[in-house]
Simulated scan of single mutants.
Amino acid sequence: MLNGAVRPGGLAIALSGTAAAAIAMAAAPWVRAQVLPIMVLPLLLAVIAGGAAAAALPRWAAGGAIVAAVAAVQVAGMATVARRDILNFAGAGGTSYDQAYLQSPFLTALAVAAAAAAGLALLMALLLLVDPRRLVRAYRSLEVWAGLLVVAAVPIGLCWALGYGSLSALGQFALWWSVPWGLALVAAGIARAQGRWAAWLSLAGSVALSVACVVAPLLNGPYLRFPD
């Protein structure tokens, strides 16, 4: 019965990711205005690819679900931050407050669509990937402890290093980076072999995209806006 649900589940993830990508493109001016980090676009491609892999190749469903889950969680977090910031940053790049009010529902819809994809992918990953024996011994897993540490320590460390003292900044760094990275590490600690490889690849890809967005201002203009 579970195997029969893999293809529809993968298709649902891919469709949710496609809807989120369409919404992100509708909000494209805000990508240029730095409210929505440009890395959401490759992340959404990862969501679609993970869902499509599960639908077309059920033997890869487990890995595809992990890839889609980590990417979708990060997109949902970035869209949530963008929805908070959009009115604050109205006027950037010549964008008016009227345009900001018009774009705000798109960012809300993007967060909802990404969250839906994340929920579906996490459910599929939980059903297909989690090894009960490893789950019972999760408290002994270095990956699980590392994931929990990353969730807490990365935002605190960034706020300390960059001189931010607000809960808003702490939440922004958590939603942007530490929650999806911690999720990937926890998944690596409790999943079967295919899921562990997918989790590590997802973590590496997310970190690489994040570093690229941070470095990009030095090369070709700003692609991330840090808390003000």
Rank of each mutant, 00 (worst) to 15 (best):
residue 58 P to E: 02
residue 25 M to Q: 13
residue 212 A to S: 14
residue 16 S to M: 13
residue 223 Y to Q: 09
residue 110 L to P: 07
residue 77 G to N: 01
residue 147 G to Y: 00
residue 66 I to R: 06
residue 61 A to C: 11
residue 47 V to M: 07
residue 52 A to T: 15
residue 187 A to L: 10
residue 141 S to W: 02
residue 170 L to V: 05
residue 98 D to S: 14
residue 42 P to D: 05
residue 33 A to D: 02
residue 37 P to L: 05
residue 78 M to T: 07
residue 228 D to K: 11
residue 210 S to P: 07
residue 132 P to N: 03
residue 18 T to N: 10
residue 120 L to E: 03
residue 62 A to S: 15
residue 63 G to C: 08
residue 202 S to F: 11
residue 144 V to T: 02
residue 136 V to Y: 03
residue 108 T to W: 06
residue 150 V to D: 00
residue 171 G to F: 05
residue 182 G to E: 04
residue 160 W to H: 14
residue 182 G to R: 09
residue 84 R to A: 05
residue 117 A to H: 09
residue 117 A to G: 14
residue 130 V to A: 00
residue 206 S to R: 09
residue 219 L to H: 13
residue 126 L to T: 15
residue 203 L to K: 11
residue 35 V to P: 08
residue 181 W to L: 14
residue 61 A to Q: 07
residue 162 L to N: 04
residue 206 S to E: 11
residue 181 W to F: 10
residue 154 V to T: 01
residue 158 L to M: 12
residue 109 A to C: 11
residue 193 A to V: 09
residue 44 L to S: 06
residue 46 A to H: 05
residue 114 A to R: 12
residue 25 M to E: 14
residue 186 V to I: 15
residue 41 L to S: 01
residue 103 Q to V: 12
residue 96 S to D: 01
residue 192 R to F: 02
residue 121 A to T: 09
residue 148 L to Q: 00
residue 49 A to F: 11
residue 164 Y to C: 03
residue 70 V to Q: 14
residue 125 A to C: 08
residue 87 L to H: 10
residue 94 G to Q: 06
residue 23 I to Q: 09
residue 86 I to D: 05
residue 177 W to E: 07
residue 145 W to R: 06
residue 144 V to N: 02
residue 197 W to Q: 02
residue 3 N to F: 08
residue 109 A to Y: 07
residue 219 L to Q: 14
residue 22 A to M: 08
residue 99 Q to S: 13
residue 121 A to C: 10
